[in-house]
Simulated scan of single mutants.
Amino acid sequence: MPKWEVIQQVFKGIGLFGAYNIRWFNYKHILINLLNEYEYDFKRIWGYQAWFIANQKMEVFKWSLDLNPEKTPSIVLVWISFPNLKLHLFEKSMLLAIAKSIENLLYVNESPANGTKPSMARVYVEYDCFNPLVDSI
C-alpha cells in the first residue's frame, strides 16, 4: 500500500470539482467518499477501473451494502457497440435512450454523432453480471 501522503497527493491531482474524503477501509483498501452531487466526480473516479498510485494498482469498486473487497464485484464497466445503426439513431439523444434501456449509462462515444467514426456507435455502461444478457432492444 502506498504511503497515506502519496494517496492524498494523487487525489488532489485528479481534478475533482467537489469535496471528498479518503479514509482507510482496511489494511489494503481505501474508501473514497464523494461529498457532493457532481456526477463528473463519480464518473471520473469510477470510469477508470484501475488507478496506479506509486506503481501499485488500485482497483475501483462501487460501494454497495454487500461489497466484499476480497471478491470480484458483479458490477463492471463495459463498452457496448451498436454496429449498423440507422443514420438517425447516431444522434446523442437516441444513443442515450438506447443505452438507458440496457444499464446505467456513464458515457456516450460522440464520434459517430459528429461524423468522425460513422460506422460504430458505442456507449460505456455499468453492467451487473448477475443480470441476464440483453440480446435485442
Rank of each mutant, 00 (worst) to 15 (best):
F90W: 06
W51H: 01
Y20S: 14
N84T: 04
G47Q: 04
Q49D: 03
K12D: 10
L87D: 05
L34M: 04
M94N: 06
V78N: 03
L77H: 09
F90H: 08
S74W: 10
S93D: 10
L34N: 04
Q56I: 08
I53Q: 03
I102Q: 02
Y38E: 13
L65I: 05
P83H: 01
S93E: 08
K12P: 08
N26W: 00
E103L: 04
L87C: 03
N26T: 00
H88F: 04
K71R: 09
L77D: 05
I80K: 06
I98T: 02
E5M: 03
A97V: 13
W79G: 14
E103D: 14
P73N: 13
F61M: 15
Q9G: 12
M1D: 14
K100N: 10
I45K: 01
F61W: 11
K86F: 11
V76I: 13
K100V: 03
D41C: 09
L67G: 00
K86I: 09
L65Q: 07
I75K: 11
F42V: 02
N21W: 15
E59Q: 03
F17I: 14
E39A: 01
Y40P: 05
W4I: 10
I14C: 06
W46A: 08
E39W: 00
L31Y: 04
V78W: 00
P69H: 06
N21I: 15
N26C: 01
V76D: 07
I98F: 05
D41T: 08
D41E: 14
A50W: 03
I75D: 08
Y27K: 11
H29S: 13
